[in-house]
Amino acid sequence: MTTSAKRLDSAARRAQLLDVADRVFTAHGVHAPLDLIVEMAGVGRATLYRQFPDRHMLLLALMERSAQWLATRARRLAHRDDAFFRLLDYMASRIVRSPALSDYWRTTRMSDPRFSDVYQEVLNAFAPPVARAQRAGLLHADVRADDIPLLASMLAAGLRGETDAERRQLVGRALCIVQRGLTPSAPGGCLPGTVNDLS
């Protein structure tokens, strides 16, 4: 096997382990036994620990991947005046899909140097959409990109739901309230196409 093929195989294995870890943590919480990930992924312990030496490194990798997905979406939406609200929508959907990881992320401190790069990537993704929405008159002028962790915490209040359906309903409601508060002259209802479909 060539070096490039080995790299591809390693990257694919890493992605598979992250997918499995996300499912395990969603079902059992972030303190679930790592052996569950090993078993569900069909790999040996050595394979998991080669990629992720400990639980912290695994959770950090999940956070980094989530931030990268957000940044990719931000680039795809860069031409839209409402990109900021669509990114908030996306953040709400991630909270619903990965409640354990979202709760873990919510409880980390921005001052913790282990997470500073991840937080900065999220803020960088939101900064241009914030400025564009403000120029278009869609967003209050005093909103800043570094308000995003606070907004994420507000949306994460929906994690109190006991079932997936309850979480979807609560996160959708929180999203509606947050959007109305951020939008100048917002109508009485929620912005169209943002709350009902968090798939």
Score class of each variant (00 low, 15 high):
residue 1 M to N: 11
residue 2 T to M: 11
residue 3 T to V: 11
residue 5 A to I: 09
residue 7 R to Q: 13
residue 14 R to F: 03
residue 18 L to Q: 12
residue 19 D to P: 04
residue 22 D to F: 04
residue 23 R to H: 08
residue 23 R to Q: 13
residue 24 V to Y: 05
residue 26 T to R: 15
residue 26 T to K: 13
residue 32 A to G: 04
residue 33 P to I: 11
residue 34 L to G: 02
residue 35 D to M: 10
residue 35 D to H: 07
residue 35 D to G: 07
residue 37 I to D: 01
residue 40 M to H: 09
residue 41 A to Y: 09
residue 41 A to C: 12
residue 42 G to M: 09
residue 43 V to A: 05
residue 43 V to F: 04
residue 48 L to E: 02
residue 52 F to E: 01
residue 52 F to Y: 14
residue 53 P to R: 14
residue 53 P to C: 11
residue 57 M to P: 02
residue 57 M to Y: 07
residue 60 L to Y: 08
residue 62 L to E: 07
residue 62 L to C: 13
residue 63 M to E: 07
residue 65 R to G: 15
residue 68 Q to C: 00
residue 68 Q to H: 09
residue 76 R to N: 05
residue 78 A to W: 00
residue 80 R to Q: 13
residue 85 F to M: 00
residue 88 L to M: 15
residue 93 S to N: 04
residue 99 P to T: 02
residue 99 P to N: 07
residue 101 L to E: 04
residue 104 Y to H: 15
residue 104 Y to T: 02
residue 109 R to N: 15
residue 109 R to P: 04
residue 110 M to H: 09
residue 110 M to V: 14
residue 111 S to Y: 07
residue 115 F to P: 02
residue 117 D to S: 14
residue 120 Q to K: 11
residue 121 E to S: 12
residue 122 V to G: 02
residue 124 N to Y: 07
residue 131 A to P: 03
residue 133 A to F: 05
residue 136 A to I: 09
residue 142 D to W: 11
residue 145 A to N: 01
residue 146 D to C: 07
residue 149 P to L: 12
residue 162 E to G: 15
residue 163 T to Y: 07
residue 163 T to S: 15
residue 169 Q to T: 13
residue 174 A to V: 00
residue 177 I to N: 04
residue 177 I to M: 10
residue 179 Q to I: 12
residue 179 Q to P: 00
residue 181 G to L: 14
residue 182 L to K: 01
residue 185 S to Y: 10
residue 187 P to L: 08
residue 188 G to H: 08
residue 188 G to T: 08
residue 194 T to K: 06
residue 194 T to W: 00
residue 195 V to D: 00
residue 196 N to A: 15
residue 197 D to S: 08
